[in-house]
Nucleic acid binder design. Structure first.
Length: 295
DNA sequence: CTCGTCCCCTGGGAGC
DNA sequence: TGCTCCCAGGGGACGA
C-alpha cells in the first residue's frame, strides 16, 4: 500500500494520539511481522512517553523518552487505526475526527490481522497488516541515522537534498531503467510504483528509458513532477486502493487523480494526446504509461 | 558493484 | 456459488 504520501498521512494522523503522551499499555499479539519484533518489544514501549514523531522515507519514527525510538514500516498492507477514548482527559485533542471514529469499545473487537495495540490517555491505536510485510524495531535515538533500514536511504524528495542534479549524478552511467532507479530507495527515498508511474507521466518520460540516457532537461521535469505529485497526494490524504485508510477510517482520494496508474486501456489524460495508457511488466511489477507522450 | 529474478504473505477480483 | 489463477502499494536475498 503505502508510499511516502500514505505514510505521511498516517504519521500526521497518529501524532495527536501519541505526541507528548505515555504509552500506557502495549500489546504485541504475535511475535513477528515480516521479521521478529525486537526483544521485549512491548515492555520496552510500555510506560514510555512519546517525545515526537517524524517520517523518513516510508518509515514512521517515534521518539521515546529514555533514549530509544520506535521504527514502524507499513509494508504493503499495513494500516493504523486510531480510536479516540471518548470522555478521556486527552481525547479532545482528537476532536477533529471524533465524529468519524468508532468508539474505543468497538476497537476492542480485534481481528486476526490486528497485530499491535497501543493505549494512551487519548486513544487506542491498532496496527493491522494482513500480508505482514510490515516491520517494527526499536533503536537508540542518537544512532537512528545508522540504523540498517535508514542508513543507505537517498534524499527526501520534498527536502532540499533532492533536485535534478542529484538525479543526474545518480543516473550517470546507469543502464537500468529510469523506473527501476526511481524505485531504488538509495537513489531517492519514499517512492513506490504508483507515484513513480505518475511522475514519469507528468514529466513525459518513458519508464523503459535507460536512466543514464535521460537528458538534463527531462530530469528537471522529472524532479519537479516527483515533488508535485507527492505534495498533491499528501494534500489529498494519500491514495486509497485496498488497504490505505487515514487513521480515522476516512479514505484518501488521490487515486481519483491518477493519470496512468491502474488505467490500462484508457485514453491518455493529456488533452492534446491521442494515446492510450498501456501496462507493461517491468522488474516484476506493472508499469503504466502512455507510449505516445512518454518517450 | 549493478542488475534482474524470486520470494515472503494474504486477500480480492476476474474468469470459467 | 465456488474454484483457480493472477495481481497487489515493499524490499531483502540471491545469482549472473
Amino acid at each position: 500500500m503505502p508510499e511516502l504520501p500514505e505514510v505521511e498521512t498516517v504519521m500526521r494522523g497518529v501524532r495527536p494520539a501519541l505526541d507528548g503522551l505515555t504509552l500506557d499499555r502495549v500489546e504485541a499479539r504475535r511475535p513477528d511481522l515480516r521479521w521478529p519484533l525486537p526483544e521485549r518489544f512491548a515492555e520496552r514501549l510500555t510506560g514510555r512517553r512519546v517525545l515526537g514523531l517524524a517520517r523518513r522515507s516510508k518509515y514512521i519514527l517515534i521518539e521515546l523518552e529514555g533514549g530509544e525510538s520506535w521504527l514502524v514500516h507499513l509494508g504493503m498492507s499495513g494500516r493504523v487505526a486510531v480510536f479516540p477514548r471518548v470522555g478521556a482527559p486527552q481525547a479532545e485533542r482528537l476532536g477533529a475526527f471524533l465524529h468519524a471514529a468508532p468508539s474505543a469499545e468497538a476497537a476492542a473487537a480485534l481481528g486476526p490481522h490486528d497485530h499491535v495495540v497501543v493505549d494512551t490517555a487519548a486513544a487506542r491505536l491498532v496496527y493491522t497488516d494482513a500480508r505482514r510485510f510490515g516491520a517494527m524495531d526499536l533503536a537508540p535515538t542518537d544512532a537512528l541515522a545508522e540504523h540498517k533500514w535508514l542508513a543507505r536511504l537517498g534524499p527526501e524528495p520534498l527536502g532540499n537534498g533532492f533536485h535534478a542534479e542529484h538525479l543526474a549524478a545518480r543516473f550517470a552511467g546507469r543502464v537500468a531503467s529510469v523506473k527501476a532507479q526511481l524505485l531504488d530507495q538509495t537513489v531517492i527515498a519514499g517512492l513506490g510504483n504508483i507515484y513513480v508511474c505518475e511522475a514519469l507521466w507528468r514529466a513525459g518520460v518513458s519508464p523503459l528509458r535507460a536512466a543514464g540516457a535521460v537528458e538534463a532537461e527531462a530530469l528537471e521535469r522529472l524532479a519537479a513532477a516527483v515533488r508535485a505529485v507527492l505534495a498533491e497526494a499528501i494534500e489529498a490524504g494519500g491514495s486509497s486502493l485496498r488497504d490505505h485508510r487515514q487513521v480515522d477510517g476516512e479514505l484518501g482520494y488521490f487515486q481519483h487523480r491518477f493519470a496512468v496508474y491502474g488505467r490500462a486501456g484508457e485514453p491518455c489524460a493529456r488533452p492534446t494526446c491521442r494515446g492510450e495508457v498501456v501496462r507493461v511488466p517491468q522488474n516484476g511489477r506493472s508499469s503504466f504509461y502512455c507510449e505516445h507522450c512518454q518517450a
